[in-house]
Each structure stands twice: as C-alpha cells, then as structure tokens.
C-alpha cells in the first residue's frame, strides 16, 4: 500500500544543512495502523507531510498503491491527495468563518462533489457532532474541533489517513471517541499513519516505529 524507499529530506537553515529524514525505508500494508513515535524534532511531522504528497523528499521514492507521488505534476498530485489521503493535525486547521458542516465539506472544493448533505451529516453524527452542525469552530471544545477535523479527513473515505498528534489536546473521553472512529476506518480497509507520544494510543496500533534524528530505529 505505502512504500518509502530510502527517503532523505534535508533543509538548509542559516547555512547549515539539517537532515530531517535520513534514508527512511518503510512499507505499510493496506488496512494497517502504524504509530510513529519519537522525541520532538526527530522528523515525525516531516515524514507525515512527505508521505502526504505535500513535501517532496530530497531523495528517495514514495509510492502509494504503486503510484510514485512525486513523479506527478503538482496539479495531479493535488487530485491524488484529494482522492487518496486524509489529514488530521494537532491544531485542527478549521476555517473559523465556516460552520462545522461547511468545514467538513471543504474537501469538496478539490473537485469531488458527489457527496450528499445527508452523507456528510451522517459522518458528522458518527463522531457525535450532529447537534453542532451549524456552530462555528470558536463555539466548540478542543475535542469537538478535533472530531470535526477527523470528519473532514474522512469525507472522501481516503485510502490512507495521516494524523499528527491528534490526541494531544484531548481528554480521555474524546480520545476514546477518536480512537473508536480510527478503528472503524482501519476495519473498513483504511491505512493509518499516526504520529503520537501517547503510549495508550500506541498500544492500539498494529505496529510502532521510532524515529531518532530522522532515522527509523526499529520496526
């Protein structure tokens, strides 16, 4: 499903070359739930953005369902991202002037528009937010915001879900709701790559990989 071949990503900052990812090779099967763990600044988010077709590696190849995503043009990569990848971030990135319903429908701007309002509402309801449909993000709790972000990521039922510290700001009750929804996604064949420090969350993964200074320690 997901293949990373010798991925290296370097940055130049103040005339110094920083190696964020160093020869990372990783294979993730379809329906697999993989947790990426490691200290701050070890390259977890860089790995997620690289896999998410948002950050081109300095070298190496990334294939999703055998498609080399960085061989595509920027336009095609956008379409591929819209159809295959779902993102959830610790900071939610909800659009403040839109309601919850509208925020969840945002991926429809990327092209697909064959999802009915009922389907969207059903999705939102599955995350316990039905009574918040017409509220704006400012009126929601952190857990509700994160659930909204998860609903947005799942709108097109992506093949792979990339989640970055999504339980970091949540109370146990909300963590439970989110993890249940992730389990549902995995059970329906979805692949998950989750960055987290939370050991309880890691226990629910099929596999945990550790990053240190841009390198995978063990698999």
């Amino acid at each position: 499903m997901l293949q990373l071949e010798n991925i290296t990503k370097t940055y130049t900052k103040e005339n110094q070359t920083i190696r964020a990812l160093n020869s990372v090779t990783l294979n993730v099967s379809e329906g697999e739930f993989v947790v990426v763990s490691g200290a701050s600044g070890c390259g977890k988010t860089t790995l997620l953005l690289t896999v998410g077709a948002l950050l081109k590696p300095t070298s190496g190849k990334i294939k999703i369902n055998s498609a080399d995503i960085y061989e595509m043009t920027s336009e095609k990569r956008s379409v591929f991202r819209a159809n295959n990848i779902g993102f959830v971030f610790q900071q939610y990135h909800l659009i403040p002037y839109l309601t919850i319903l509208e925020n969840v429908k945002i991926p429809m701007l990327a092209g697909k528009s064959n999802i009915s309002d009922n389907d969207v509402i059903e999705l939102i309801d599955s995350l316990g937010l039905k009574d918040r449909l017409h509220h704006t993000p400012a009126e929601l709790s952190a857990g509700e915001k994160q659930r909204t972000a998860l609903a947005r990521a799942l709108l097109f039922n992506p093949k792979i879900l990339l989640a970055d510290e999504i339980t970091g700001n949540l109370d146990p009750e909300n963590i439970e709701i989110v993890m249940t929804r992730l389990a549902d996604f995995k059970n329906s064949g979805g692949t998950i790559l989750l960055v987290t420090h939370d050991k309880e969350v890691s226990k629910k993964a099929d596999r945990v990989i550790y990053l240190e200074r841009g390198e995978i320690l063990n698999i």
Partner: peptide, 10 residues
C-alpha cells in the same frame, strides 16, 4: 495550508 492539504488546486 489546509485547503492545499485536502487537494484544492493552486
């Protein structure tokens, strides 16, 4: 950023 992440074109 999020619009680009969900696949909205330039």
């Amino acid at each position: 950023g999020i619009l680009r992440a969900v696949g909205v074109k330039e």
